[in-house]
Structures are given as structure tokens and as C-alpha cells.
Design a protein around this nucleic acid. Sequence first.
DNA 1: GTTTAATTCAAACGTTTGTTTAATTTTGTG
DNA 2: CACAAAATTAAACAAACGTTTGAATTAAAC
Lengths: 213, 213
Amino acid sequence: MSDKREHILIVAEALFGEKGFDGTSVRDIAQQAGVNLAMISYYFGSKEKLLEAMIEFRAMYAYGILEELNKNESLSPWDKMDRLVEFYVDRILNNLPFHNIMYTETGTNFRSEEIKNKVIAIKMRNLDHITKIITDGQQKKLFRQVDIPMTVGTIMGTISSYTQSRAFSCQILAIQEDINDESFRSRLSVRLKSHLKQLLRAHLDIRNEIEPE
Amino acid sequence: MSDKREHILIVAEALFGEKGFDGTSVRDIAQQAGVNLAMISYYFGSKEKLLEAMIEFRAMYAYGILEELNKNESLSPWDKMDRLVEFYVDRILNNLPFHNIMYTETGTNFRSEEIKNKVIAIKMRNLDHITKIITDGQQKKLFRQVDIPMTVGTIMGTISSYTQSRAFSCQILAIQEDINDESFRSRLSVRLKSHLKQLLRAHLDIRNEIEPE
DNA sequence: GTTTAATTCAAACGTTTGTTTAATTTTGTG
DNA sequence: CACAAAATTAAACAAACGTTTGAATTAAAC
């Protein structure tokens, strides 16, 4: 992939993440990227194809890491869950613009069938990996019976609920608003990881099986 | 509020929820509502003010219910948490279009300072109510020490992660896609409530306090 | 019934939108 | 250097955008 093409993708990612797909014009992108307006059509064909290319571009990002985690025999299911939490929090916080796009632009109706299929494929892959870890823990009599897709929704949803708006998160979490982005992400990261680990430990522990009332 | 004004608001809500604020034109709204294009400016002043009016309109919605729940002395903290889950799941599933707008349109940068303040005010109010319930449970030695704002994020985030896209949710939850909206919401409701109650029971129970390692 | 205010309307306003064109410059190749 | 392909440009395109206008209609008040 040419440098310029990639540069446009990264600039567009920041703009889409900030102002949304419909809220960003191709002129915005061209100007911010320092290229001629016509280059977007030239490289991608259309604005929508650009979004598609962006998803393709970022989807490659995490391939392998989860596979590796799953195959690692030396880690207990508990360790794997902890690492899973760390992986997702880090990945999302380090790719906030793209995550915001996924979060925002995949609403009720997807922009195109291609985009819809790509996004769903990514999410299904995630679900598969987490499912393997949890069922493994269940077979080893460490984890109790839980609704696995819902548990995945809880992990992703908790992270997402604090990555959509800085102003909002600072207010709720009592973080001063004027710290820089790096510090904000770092504080949010610590807090999310610690909460999610504690939450999942209680949620999954077989000793916390609900007694029939 | 005049009938026509309210009718425009409801139509706009459905459209914004489906196609986003920027993705919906005032002409779309006018046509769908069966009113003249100029009536939107006439009633609301502008498209953005319409969104503001919509938030105002819906924000009134839940006032009182949470206050009542909190004051109810006959309910245990556990009961209150269960009712809280039911309340939020029901409220969000019964107002999916509006919830999608809040979910989508309050991204990194809000559309205006007024809207930002309104939305944050609503969320802070929610946080306050849940905080009261949880701290009450802690004082009664039923709940353990948890990160309350994060716990709220978990509740809201879990629900939101399955209300953004029907296609996606059906796929993940293994629900056939061709059932009607009513049935979909009903099945999702049951599953969300059961998962969240089980999750929070384990998460909050003081008997699940983490032993220092 | 007359007058005043509120509502509705078709039409037009000036911008901005995504995309295309056709000419020009740059680059790579023999 | 010469030539073809790729990259870049300014300009223009039609369509869609949010908003405003001013006349026409309806409703309310006296």
C-alpha cells in the first residue's frame, strides 16, 4: 500500500472518529491530508469505499494475538481472562478513533452490505476466541455456567461506555478534564482493567454458583 | 406542546435513530411527517435545535421512577438492583430510536454545548441513583467494595452493545433474523435481564470479596 | 364581520456535498 | 532522450443540503 494512500486512511480515520462519517466531507479529508480532492476518488473510488478500505486496513491489526493466547498451554483460564481484558482495553484505548467509528458507524443500518459483513465477521471471530477460553475454564471446573455472548457484550460494552466522550468520562470518573490525552487514557486503562478483572473473577468463579432459592 | 410539533419530534427520532443526525435531512423529516419543509424551522428554529428539543422531550420520560425506587424502604438492596436492571433494560428497549441517538450522537465532540450539558446531566442523575442503592447495600454489609461508576458503565454498556444493530445481535445471540421487532426485543430483554442480574449478584456480593493473594 | 395573529405553503436562496473531467506534471522504463 | 503509465491538479458537475422568503390560508379575538 502506497504511503499516500495509507496517510489518507489515517487522516480520514481521525476525522470520521471525531465528526462521524456523514459529518466529514471528502474536502475535509483532502485538506487535512494535504492532497488534492480528486485523490480520494482516485485511490478509493468513493467515500464509502474509503471507509471499507479503512476497516480492511485495521481489521488486520489484531490477527494472531488472540490465537496465540488461546494456544498457550502454560496459562490457566484465569490468567487468560486477565490477559484478554488487558488486550482489549489496550487495543481499544490505543485505537480510539477507529473504535469510535466502529462504535458509531455500525448502527441500526450499516452503510453497505460489504461493511456489515466485514464488521460482523470481526466480531464473530472475537466471540469465538472468548468462547474457547471460557468453555475451557468450564471444563476444568473453574468457571461456572454463564451466558457467553452476553459476557462478551459486558466486556466490550463496559470499555465502550467510557471511550465515546472524554468530557463525559472525565465528569463521571472524577478525572480533571484538562489533563492530556496520554494521561487520560492511562488512568482510564488502569481503572477499566481493574474493574473488569474483578467483575469477571466474581462472574465466572464456579464457587459463586447461584444457590437455588 | 402542539400535536404537530410532537409528531415531528417522533418522526425525527425514528429517522435520526436509523440514519444518524447528519444522515437525515430536514426534507426527509418533513416528508415522513407529512408537513411542509419550512415547518421544521418554524417550530424549532433549526435542525440542531430540533435535536435539542428532542432530548428535552425524552429526558422528562423517566423522572420519578428511580426516585421512587430509591425511597422504597421495603425493598432490600438486592431487590433494588434487580428492579434497576429491569427498569433500564425495559426503558432502553422501549425507546430504541432515542437510545440509538444518544448512543451515536454523543460521540467525542457533542453537537453543541447545550446538548452536551443536557446529556451529561441525565447521566449524572442516573449515576447518583445507582450510587445510592449500592452504598446502601454496602452499609448493610451485603455488597462489597466496587468501582461504582464502572459498574454503571457495565450495566449500560452491556445493554447498549446489543441494541446498536439488530443484524449483529441476531447473529451473535443465534436468534433468527426474520422474527418481528416485538419478538426480538422480548427475547433480548429476557436474556439481558437474566445475565445482568446474575452478573451483578456475583459482582456485588460481599461473600465474593477477593482474598488477598 | 372585521381585524390580527398564527400557520402553511411553494419557491428560491446560497452553500456544500460527492464525484468527474480533461489537462498537466511526475515517474518509471527501455 | 523518448515514450507510456501513473499521479496530480484546478475546474466544473449536478444533486442535496439547511434555511429564508413572502404570499396564501386558517384560526382566534373582539
